[in-house]
Computed example of a mutant assay.
Amino acid sequence: MKIGVLISGRGSNLAALIEACAEPGFRGQIALVISNRPKAEGLQVAAAAGIPTLVVDHQDFASRETFDAELDRALRAAGVELICNAGFMRILSDGFVEKWRDRQLNIHPSLLPAFKGLHVHQRALDAGVRITGCTVHFVRPEMDEGPIVAQAAVPVLSGDTPETLAARVLEAEHKLYPLALKLVVEGRARVVGEQVALLEADGTEAAPLFVPAI
């Protein structure tokens, strides 16, 4: 399966996906990495791995829809079948999301549906939760909505700051995203209604993928 990865920053989750795709027998290949920011460090991560890159700077487009149309064109030209958002800091238009319905994944640094949106770790600390984490889900037009593929739990420790908590959650993201992607490319994670049904390798029903506290 040809995968397109959308990034905006340093590309740490991209690096984890690249490593996963390089494993023997992995049935996905990253065909293109697109950044909306010309100076995103993740572009160098992709180039070092020999993966084609493209900059589609959102500032060059008059509207969200024209920007998204160029993203769509570039992805299809590369033969992309599945999109992975990996630190992509743009809200995509409803039209784009629907074109790629059930073929676009995102990772969010909380246990959805808790703490959607921005400033996630500060909000988790303010709320006094004892467990937070990250979620891989299929993308829907609403922000941080969509059928959940997998989640990982991360403890909130005494004395945590938003920065220390973010670092620990990011470590979990690097483990969870490749696991979730593997399930999708193998056809073992399928959207049924608005939930994800997971299958074992032999086709039998699998338990939900929830990684214990890291």
Rank of each mutant, 00 (worst) to 15 (best):
A152T: 13
E194A: 15
A31N: 12
F67E: 08
L111Y: 09
L6A: 04
I34N: 00
L6S: 05
A197K: 11
I7P: 00
L179A: 14
A49N: 03
V156R: 01
G28A: 05
A172W: 00
R123L: 15
A49H: 04
F88S: 01
G87P: 00
G146L: 04
A127F: 09
P162L: 15
F96T: 03
I3R: 05
D68I: 09
V45E: 00
N13G: 01
P109E: 11
R27G: 14
T132D: 09
I30W: 00
V196T: 05
A167Y: 04
V120G: 05
A78V: 01
K182W: 10
G11A: 03
V154H: 08
L183G: 11
I7H: 01
G50Q: 11
T135V: 06
E70W: 10
P178D: 06
G79D: 12
V139D: 00
A201Y: 03
F26G: 08
L71K: 07
L17T: 01
I7S: 01
E200F: 14
V156G: 04
L105H: 02
P208L: 07
G133T: 05
K2I: 14
F115P: 07
A40P: 12
V169Q: 01
I3T: 08
I83R: 01
R76G: 07
A153P: 10
F67Q: 06
A206N: 13
E186F: 08
P24K: 02
K182F: 07
A74L: 04
R64I: 14
G159Q: 08
L118D: 13
D144N: 01
F26H: 11
H119N: 15
E142A: 13
P109W: 07
F138T: 02
R123F: 13
R188E: 15
P141F: 08
L92S: 10
I7C: 02
Q151D: 06
L118K: 13
E205H: 10
H137W: 15
M1G: 11
S12T: 12
R123Y: 14
K2R: 15
C134W: 00
V211R: 10
E19L: 04
